[in-house]
């Protein structure tokens, strides 16, 4: 299983979250730039939402 396909657990209620988006963040900070995917021109965040309580979370896509 790739890192990107790992599920995220809701930090509020413990349910399995839905990974619904990947967002390219352009113009990252110097720290983020070191993690950037050169081919895409920025860092990619994956967005997760909880079907049980509606909480949102994000993490760096790998």
């Amino acid at each position: 299983m790739s890192a990107a396909s790992k599920t995220m657990i809701c930090p509020k209620c413990g349910a399995t979250m839905s990974r619904h988006a990947e967002k390219l963040i352009q113009g990252p900070t110097p720290k983020e730039a070191r993690q950037a995917e050169l081919g895409l021109g920025g860092i990619v965040l994956e967005m997760h939402s909880c079907p049980a309580c509606g909480a949102n979370a994000s993490r760096l896509a790998m």
């Binding site: 839905s18 990974r19 619904h20 988006a21 079907p51």
Partner: peptide
Amino acid sequence: LRYGREHVALD
């Protein structure tokens, strides 16, 4: 969009 965020996975 709420339904999509919470129930429709990107892949």
